[in-house]
Design a protein around this nucleic acid. Structure first.
Lengths: 205, 205
DNA sequence: CCGTGGTGATTGAACGCCCATTCAGTCTCA
DNA sequence: TGAGACTGAATGGGCGTTCAATCACCACGG
């Protein structure tokens, strides 16, 4: 049977459409993106996109779910490889920054287009974010339990603050005309997260 | 002349429309909000909204600009009243949290609806955010210069990280079904920002 | 004090644009 | 040769916006 080949071809086409959607959404913004342009860039006819995805919004959902799932898996794997909670947190944040820096169009869609409506945000996007937050929270709680992190900040507040800090650096990177390297900002960001703004009691001058 | 009275009436009507827009945008989301409902809730006819604002998006811009301007003024005033950079930062963040907690519908619009498109974000919203970031950055740089804050983190990175942390707490408060008090989270957030995650050299166990 | 005309504000029904989506016809390949 | 994949022109509907008609208010003259 040629089923395997067929499936490969089908899968390739699906990917092409998804990739085209990422690019068009990033360039024009979700609202101004035209299904016609997605189809054109994927090299298929207008109607073909509807053979692979239910519609325009389903494309957005697919972009989110497939990439978020892959990211979460990698992040969990990274964390699992480390013993120290501090090292786990460091790896996850670095993974977060690097993943998006490697694909600016995708970063665009993640930071901006995926947040375009409350309905969408609550029903879809936040589900993935919540999982990510839970991962951060677990790591932080572990660090608190082991005595490495201070115990007077609830882990859920800390997790959201950390996520927010990383998220904002990425968003401004996405919106900048001439963005500085994201990975290059990881070091100060991590210093801030780990060490805090105020001079530490026994710190360097 | 009755000009003053006329102007008052006009101003009142303008406010009613703006307020209705905040509420409808918050309840339904920008996309699903109907101009008809904004008009209805403001107690005017459909067409009247267009005598006060250019159109639907102009309402969003007006909501942003008027409130952001007022907030920035208050924040600058708060900061100006303090000597210590740490106290300035604390006041500004508290002002930020309290301002939005006092008006949940407005917070909704600020955290979600105002970010609905890249074009809008870049051209309008980010201008206001950039000003706010500059304020934070100045305060942080001042703290670094005076030796109170550590010197190995660039002020612009720190400012964005701080903004992101605050912003994310507010967003999750907005999206939560049964939100915990925002002001109640200010203390741990500030501890985190000022003190950092890791246990401080001379800190409590 | 009324009546009256005029001016600007308000109304809301109707319009028309725009594009996501559909589906009848065509093609491809085994 | 037929089953399934693909095509792309045509469609439809939803809602922001417009504007001709109406109203409210005030100044002024009788």
């Amino acid at each position: 049977m040629g089923g395997a080949l067929r499936n490969d071809a089908r899968e390739a086409r699906r990917s092409a459409i998804l990739r085209a959607a990422v690019e068009v959404f990033a360039e024009r913004g979700y609202e101004d993106a035209r299904m016609r342009e997605v189809a054109e860039r994927a090299g298929v006819a207008d109607g073909t996109t509807y053979l692979y995805f239910q519609g325009k919004e389903a494309l957005l959902v697919a972009i989110l779910e497939e990439n978020a799932k892959a990211f979460l898996e990698r992040a969990r794997r990274d964390a699992g490889r480390q013993k120290d909670p501090g090292a786990k947190l460091r790896k996850v944040i670095e993974r977060h920054l690097v993943s998006l820096e490697n694909d600016r169009a995708l970063a665009h869609v993640f930071q901006i287009e995926l947040r375009h409506s409350r309905r969408f945000l609550r029903q879809v996007a936040r589900g993935q974010v919540a999982e990510y937050l839970r991962l951060l929270q677990r790591i932080i709680a572990e660090g608190t339990a082991s005595g490495r992190f201070r115990g007077d900040i609830p882990a859920d507040v800390a997790a959201r603050a950390v996520f927010g800090a990383v998220d904002e650096l990425i968003t401004s990177w996405v919106l900048a005309d001439r963005p500085r390297s994201l990975a290059g900002q990881a070091a100060p960001l991590l210093k801030l997260i780990f060490g805090g703004l105020e001079r530490r009691a026994g710190g360097s001058r």
